[in-house]
Amino acid sequence: MVGNLSKRGYIAAHGGGMVSDKSKLTFWLLMAPLLIWLVTLIVLPHVGMFLVSMREKIGVREYQTSFANYEVFFNEPLYWNTFARTAYMSITATALTLGIGFPIAYYIAKLTRGRTKTTLFLMCLIPFWVSELVRTFGWMILLRETGVFSNVLQYLGLVSGPVEMLYNDAAIMTGLVYTSMLFMVVPLVTTLDSLDDSLIEAGYDLGASSFAILREIIIPHAMPGIVSGCIVVFMLSLGNYLTPILLGGKDSLWFTGLIYSQFITRFNWELGSAFGFLLLGLSSLIVFVGLKLSRQSLTKTMGQA
């Protein structure tokens, strides 16, 4: 460990007996808020939630430990179908966001400069400072039966009556991609910015095709950005509640909706906790696999967020 001591740590540790006592006190004073925060609001609640999920109600205020809640999940097709559907839709949303966002990030990073670049970047940021509720409300006004798109199509004579574009999977997808776009574009712009232009130019000079340059130079360099973007977008989609409920309607079948109804409307906290843990498990698994596949570390990927 001595080798790892920073210069400042060294000074603190060897600055003399009295300073050392004082710096020990400082250390614990700094450590206290961190520990209180993490233990009472992150660690204990999740342990508690796990214990509740392992509890089966056998009478009034009587419980026993069992896997009953998890069994309910696997025995009820509606539950695991919703789970699989949420995962599948989130993966699709992530892929779409990457596909749509990559050319934009490349354009901002490589084909603009100076003021245009700043302006375009800001234009990407602004929608995401606004509440997700407002953004989703915007899509509702555009897509619903009495909405803007429906009216425009009727005005143009392309359809004869009102068209309902809300309450289907495409609407959910539109909302999810819109909501997560920023979290894909920002890390992509950052990594593409650090790619030296002369590498791309050298590729051209040596006669490579555009596709080969994209595959051999640009994408490998952008990999850290692609991974962190995909991880964040996937997590946000999986944990999203507003977009599926408002754009997908009552039958949107999103897993967070099931968790909400177990907790708030059915008051079955045991089953709700089990659902919560399954969702947390899936999201952690994807983060883990993503980091392993791309050989990134959580500290590096998330630390720069």
Partner: peptide, 15 residues
């Protein structure tokens, strides 16, 4: 950062 917001909410609620 990687715990979905709704899970943070229910875990704190349960605890």
């Amino acid at each position: 950062l990687i715990i979905p917001g709704i899970i943070l909410g229910i875990s704190i609620l349960v605890f």
